[in-house]
Computed example of a mutant assay.
Amino acid sequence: MKNAGLWFGVFVLVLGCVFMWQSLSLDYSSSIGPGPGLFPLWLSGILIGLSLLYIIDSIRKNVIHITSIMPRGKGLGNVVTILLSIVIFMIVVSFAGFVIAGTILIFMLLVREYKWYRALGLSVVIALLTFFVFQTLLDVPLPVNELGF
């Protein structure tokens, strides 16, 4: 129950099975050669095989306890901050727009290491630069607020 390798192997096995099931809905071959289902079917089959080998190996030899790989102290704080900032970004981006949500996300990540005013300045510049590159140069539509950013 505490073997992290076993749990990871089971997760990858389930993921491989889902990919294989989805790839079966695609044509394996076409009139001109291999179809769109060939590559994902073979890759998911390889993924399933490797995950089974990893599960066997993690049960027999390399038992990795979950408590030994979990972060502690500042590392745990960093992980929680990253997850929390992503959740807040997903909530805020739909009504506040990309620039404001991105500024909040980057600020939350930087304020732990920089003074608050430097973190805020960097956050605004990075969010605006990212918005400009994707919206203007790459023509990727990003969520905006009533003000257009």
Rank of each mutant, 00 (worst) to 15 (best):
C17E: 05
R72Y: 14
F89Q: 04
S58L: 05
G35V: 02
Y54D: 07
L52R: 05
V93D: 00
V10K: 01
F39L: 14
S85W: 02
V80A: 13
S58I: 13
S44Q: 07
L13K: 05
I69K: 09
T81H: 02
S44G: 09
G33F: 07
L52A: 15
T67K: 12
V18C: 09
S30H: 01
L84S: 13
I64M: 12
I59S: 12
I86C: 04
K61Y: 14
C17A: 14
L26R: 06
A96H: 01
R72N: 12
I64T: 14
S31W: 09
D57Q: 11
L43A: 07
L52K: 10
L50V: 15
S31P: 11
N78G: 12
P34G: 04
N62R: 13
P36Y: 06
L76S: 04
P71S: 06
H65G: 14
W21R: 02
V10M: 06
P71C: 08
L84Q: 10
N78H: 06
N78V: 10
G45V: 13
Y28C: 02
I64P: 02
W21H: 03
G16N: 07
S25G: 14
I88D: 02
S85F: 04
G77L: 13
I46R: 04
L50I: 15
L15S: 03
V14N: 02
L84F: 10
I86V: 10
V18S: 03
L13E: 01
V14A: 05
S68I: 09
K74E: 15
V63Q: 05
I82L: 15
V93A: 04
G77E: 13
S58K: 12
S30K: 05
L84E: 02
L83D: 05
L26N: 02
Q22G: 07
I91H: 08
G37Q: 05
G49Q: 14
I88T: 02
Q22D: 07
I32L: 10
M70C: 14
L24A: 03
I59M: 11
S94C: 08
M70W: 14
W21T: 03
I55H: 11
V93C: 05
W42C: 08
V10Q: 03
P71M: 13
V14M: 06
I82C: 10
G45A: 15
T81Y: 00
D57E: 15
V10L: 08
I88W: 00
V80E: 01
C17H: 00
V93W: 01
I69S: 10
V12G: 00
S51T: 07
W21K: 01
S94I: 08
G37I: 06
P71I: 10
D57R: 14
S30W: 07
S68G: 15
P36N: 09
S30Q: 07
S29Q: 12
G33C: 08
F89R: 01
V12T: 14
Q22F: 02
I56T: 14
M20L: 15
S30R: 07
P36D: 04
G45I: 12
I56L: 15
Y54S: 09
L52W: 11
M20I: 12
S23V: 01
S58A: 13
G16T: 05
I86S: 03
S30G: 10
F95I: 08
C17I: 10
I56Y: 12
L41I: 09
C17F: 09
